[in-house]
Amino acid sequence: MTDAARGHSTATLFEASAGAAHACDPGLRPSWQGARVAGPAFTVQGIGGDNLALHRAVAAAPAGSVLVVDLQGARHGHLGEILAVAAQQRGILGLVVDGGVRDTAEQAELDFPVFARHITVVGTGKDHPGTFDVPVRVGGVVVRPGDLVVGDADGVVVLRAEAVAETLDRSDERVAAEQRALAAIRGGVTTLEYYRLGSGSTP
């Protein structure tokens, strides 16, 4: 569906989307440096402080999907090393969770990308089964099943499934334009000159 979003950054996708992409709030951050994920959302509605829904989602989600989980921003370690390994074995690409996680060093060693609101050692219960494949709110953004989710060092963006192909094409064009700009600037042209910013413009 996405070819890993063609390698585009969250910033490029957001700027090229013509309003079809939505940026999750900056509280959702990569749990380890260098984490990056891109893929269709498998949505999970759970209860903060309980991770039974995540255990069930790992068993149910199709390979090639990204778990996108609403846990109400709860300050609990809903996913750790064991669930990360289990998710990788199932072919799940990564996790975006409005809640907390733990074992971030192990996630980095596994190269399993996780984006979360908190990093914490606080444990969880296992009582609430959760609901799958329903719209969820994560980072202030409503995510529908199958929406494209992309996370990198700058944050997380969500792109409506029906707008993916067009946005990726525009992103390709935007990157090409930026490369032309960079070549000119490295050749000595100022940004004021290249972008024709008038002297009366506010910096």
Rank of each mutant, 00 (worst) to 15 (best):
S201V: 10
A16S: 10
G130N: 06
G39W: 11
E109M: 11
L182R: 15
G80I: 05
G155F: 00
Q72I: 10
F112E: 00
K126M: 14
P113W: 04
A116W: 04
R75F: 14
G39Q: 07
L28K: 07
A59D: 11
A23K: 15
E178G: 08
Y195A: 02
A61E: 04
D70A: 13
L52R: 10
H55A: 08
A105H: 05
V122Y: 06
G200Y: 04
G46S: 03
L168H: 13
A4P: 03
V150Y: 03
G140K: 12
L159P: 03
L52F: 04
I119S: 01
S171N: 07
A84H: 04
V149A: 05
R56M: 13
L182G: 10
L168V: 11
V164D: 05
E193K: 11
M1E: 09
T2D: 04
R75L: 15
H76A: 15
L192W: 12
V141M: 09
L192T: 15
S31M: 13
E162N: 03
G19A: 02
L192N: 13
L148V: 05
I47H: 06
L13Q: 09
P30G: 09
V189W: 06
H22R: 14
I119F: 01
A61I: 08
W32A: 12
G100T: 00
V37T: 10
A183Y: 09
Q89K: 14
I185G: 12
G27K: 14
N51E: 06
L95A: 01
G151R: 03
A23E: 10
Q88C: 10
G140N: 12
T167Y: 11
G123P: 00
V85F: 09
L148A: 02
V66N: 00
V141D: 04
Q88F: 14
R56V: 08
V96K: 01
D98R: 00
R170N: 08
P113E: 00
A38I: 11
R75T: 12
L83S: 04
A5F: 08
G27I: 08
E173I: 12
H22T: 09
L148I: 02
E193V: 06
G34L: 14
T10S: 15
P30R: 07
T104Q: 01
V138H: 05
A74F: 13
G80N: 04
D172T: 13
F14G: 05
G100C: 01
R144P: 08
G64W: 00
G188D: 04
